[in-house]
Simulated assay, not measured.
Amino acid sequence: MMPLRFMSKLDTHQIKFQDRTITVKVVDHADMVSPYLTELKSLIGASTAVGLEVGYFPDKADLFKLFVIPKEAVLMLKLSVGTCCLLIQLSRLDSVPECLKEFLADPEICFVGVGMRSDLAKLKTHGRIDQTNGINVSDLAVKVLKKSCLDGCALEDVADIVGVALPEDPGPAYDVDLEAKFYTSDEIKRLIYEVDAAHLIGTKLLGML
């Protein structure tokens, strides 16, 4: 592996989303998790929601499971806070660092996302990470705004009601290789759109409490 000071520069991407510039770090070495996670944690305030999303082997592969070599299902963990986003390629790490397990198990952090129950189950079963403190964005909106009609609503719909301006959807990320050695700016936008949106909406909702 290259020295960490060079790895840090190679891992970092500056992505423009509307009037925000998001620093995205693609993490493919266990040694890089701790310093990047420390930076992310420094951005968490009292009412900050941490966006969380799990990238995994596409469900459509189940249709061809007789022809697919068995492998770990969870490939990438996405975390978003403020203008910082980590794309941790779990499948390329030699091991899951304890600092990451401790961060995800912190009872004081509110993790938000879409399909959270399914994501956390995959993270535990296939990623060997036990994380239980998470909530769907729509469920959080129902609880904070006391509106049952928001149950199961899409990110964009919740964002409109909450008053969060999301950037234009760059397109689906299901066809982006989660184990790639490098990504284009377009691919990174597609990878972080949902987790960044979850963070923005979740933080706005927690600020209403």
Rank of each mutant, 00 (worst) to 15 (best):
Val68Cys: 07
Phe103Gln: 08
Pro172Lys: 10
Ser185Cys: 04
Ser148Val: 13
Phe103His: 13
Leu66Val: 09
Arg117Ser: 14
Ala180Val: 11
Lys60Thr: 11
Leu200Trp: 06
Ala180Arg: 09
Leu150Gly: 09
Val164Asp: 06
Val81Asn: 03
Thr38Trp: 13
Glu53Lys: 13
Gly115Cys: 05
Leu79Arg: 02
Asp130Asn: 13
Ser148Asn: 08
Ser95Lys: 10
Pro3His: 02
Ser80Met: 08
Leu43His: 12
Val74Ser: 07
Lys60Pro: 00
Lys9Gln: 13
Ser8Met: 11
Gly202Phe: 03
Val137Ser: 05
Val27Pro: 01
Leu123Val: 07
Val68Leu: 09
Tyr193Ile: 09
Lys78His: 14
Asn136Leu: 09
Val50Thr: 10
Asp31Trp: 14
Ala141Asn: 02
Ser148Gln: 10
Cys84Asn: 04
Met116Glu: 00
Ser42Gly: 10
Leu191Gly: 10
Lys204Ala: 15
Leu66Trp: 13
Lys65Arg: 10
Val144Leu: 03
Cys85Trp: 02
Lys122Arg: 13
Pro58Ser: 07
Val112Ile: 08
Leu123Ala: 03
Thr23Ile: 14
Arg190Pro: 01
Leu79Ser: 05
Asp11Cys: 12
Pro167Met: 05
Ala105Gln: 12
Asn136Glu: 12
Asp94Thr: 09
Tyr36His: 15
Leu4Pro: 00
Pro167Thr: 08
Lys25Met: 14
Ile135Lys: 09
Gly134Trp: 03
Tyr174Pro: 00
Ser80Thr: 07
His126Ala: 07
Arg117Asp: 13
